[in-house]
Structure formats: structure tokens, C-alpha cells
């Protein structure tokens, strides 16, 4: 079922039989995932499914109790520095420093990658937040903060983007704008993306592959059509979820 690990990076991200528990909570129960360069993958699932835990393990922020994770063939243990250069991420909820301006925040993170002002200006243009450069983070709206977080994730032109619910709480237009930014990256830079979401249309519009998680397990994966065909033809993910678990995807 799981292919042998390739040395020529057929898969940019490989997750093999990963488990993670917090005391008695088994957050991720032996999950495997393979992502090709340039592939966009969506992780869908109800609250507490283990999406954030899985993504943070791939990001090197949390460490699996069992199993292995390879990014471009490298593991976190010995290659922190290279891997940090290669990935870009936004966490489910990060508050940047309230009393810094958006521009100063971006310059700060740029300095970690040894990037200078022109790249920061470029990113502001890319995420369409130029008129808020001088605003304190404190005074940005929720959606503007999410754009800033996305901008920070894009600074180092990452090969792999990991975005944890990047569009939650955004208005439909803003959401569509972010989708288009991401699709441009895929077209121009062959960026790979792992995204968690609660929006089926987001997964459908953006992603090549959808993975449905529940209670630390993967229930099914494939294109939207393939997933709906699981267990004999459903009209929506919710319907499928009911047939798999007996519960609604989102109550």
C-alpha cells in the first residue's frame, strides 16, 4: 500500500505511520500521507480530528511519538536549518506583536531568512495589503491579519506551504483572492500545499486531492469524485461522512 521511499523525491512530503498522543488523548493514530511536488492537498475533518497536530508534526513543531516524516528526503532531526528554509507556514492562530506595524512584522520575519526590503514590498503587493503597511497589527481586521500571516508564510518563496485554516472567517471575496494567489504560486513555482479547511468548496476549487480525517484516522482520500464514490456514490462530503461514521461532518 505505502510505496518505498524514493531518493529522487517523487514525493516532496512523506508521512509514514505517524502517531501522536497527548496524555490519554490519541490525536493522530498511525497516519500515512504522500505528496508530490506541485500537488495541492486538503485535510478536511471535524474539530479535534487531528489536522493541526498532523500538520504541526510535518512542520517540525511537534514530534511524532512513532513513525517517520521526510521532507524532500530529509528528517527534522538532522536538517532543521535546510527544512526551515524550504517551508512556509501559517498556524491556526497566531497573534503577531500588537505594537508592531504590518511592515515591521514582515521585515522582522524577512530578517530570519536574510531577506531585505524589496522582497518585503513584493510580498505586500502579492497579498494586497499595501495600504495597511503602516498600521499596527493591533488595528488590523481579522482578515487582514490572516493575509499578513499568509504573507509571512510566503516570504522565503517556500517549496512547501502548510496553511492551517488560512481562510477561516474571511469573506467570500477575500477567500477567492487568497485561492487565486495560491493557484498562481502553483503555476509559477510548482509550490506544494497542505491545507486544512472546513470548507468543501475550498478543497474542491484549490486542491488536487482531499484527505478526510476523523478522530486521528484518515477515513478516505482522493479527488472529490473518488471520495464521493467511496462506499457507493454520495452527493456531498457530509453524506459520505454520515455513511462512514454515522455523524454529520459539521453539526
Amino acid at each position: 500500500m505505502i510505496p518505498q521511499r524514493m531518493t529522487d523525491f517523487e514525493y516532496i512530503v512523506e508521512v509514514r505511520q505517524v502517531r501522536k498522543s497527548f496524555k490519554e488523548v490519541r490525536a493522530v493514530k498511525g497516519v500515512s500521507l504522500m505528496i508530490r511536488p506541485g500537488e495541492f492537498l486538503a485535510l478536511l475533518g471535524p474539530n479535534g480530528a487531528g489536522k493541526t497536530t498532523l500538520v504541526e508534526m510535518i512542520e517540525g513543531i511537534q514530534h511524532p511519538d512513532e513513525g517517520e516524516i521526510y521532507i524532500a528526503g530529509k528528517q527534522w532531526k538532522n536538517h532543521q536549518h535546510e527544512l526551515h528554509q524550504m517551508i512556509g507556514l501559517s498556524l491556526q492562530e497566531t497573534r503577531f506583536m500588537d505594537k508592531l506595524t504590518a511592515y515591521e512584522t514582515m521585515r522582522l520575519f524577512a530578517s530570519f531568512y536574510k531577506l531585505n526590503a524589496p522582497r518585503v514590498d513584493e510580498v505586500f503587493q502579492l497579498i494586497g495589503l499595501e495600504e495597511k503597511k503602516k498600521a499596527y497589527v493591533d488595528n488590523l481586521s481579522g482578515g487582514q491579519r490572516q493575509r499578513l500571516a499568509l504573507g509571512v508564510a510566503l516570504l522565503n518563496k517556500p517549496k512547501i506551504l502548510l496553511l492551517d485554516e488560512p481562510t477561516t472567517g474571511l469573506d467570500p471575496n477575500a477567500r477567492r483572492e487568497i485561492w487565486n494567489i495560491l493557484l498562481d504560486l502553483k503555476r509559477e513555482h510548482n509550490t506544494s500545499l497542505i491545507l486544512t479547511s472546513h470548507y468543501m468548496e475550498e478543497a474542491e476549487y484549490l486542491c488536487d486531492r482531499i484527505v478526510i480525517m476523523d478522530q486521528g484516522n484518515i477515513l478516505g482520500e482522493g479527488t472529490l469524485q473518488e471520495i464521493l464514490a467511496l462506499g457507493g456514490g454520495h452527493r456531498s462530503l457530509d453524506e459520505l461522512f454520515i455513511s462512514l461514521t454515522g455523524r454529520h461532518l459539521y453539526e
Binding site: 512542520e59 513543531i61 526551515h84 528554509q85 498556524l91 497566531t94 497573534r95 506583536m97 530570519f112 531568512y113
Partner: peptide
């Protein structure tokens, strides 16, 4: 605020 976590996920 998870800012420490965000910062150490960079080459800082």
C-alpha cells in the same frame, strides 16, 4: 499567542 512557536518555525 503562539508567536514563539511561529518564530522558531523559521531559521531564527
Amino acid at each position: 499567542k503562539k508567536l514563539l512557536r511561529r518564530m522558531v518555525a523559521t531559521p531564527m
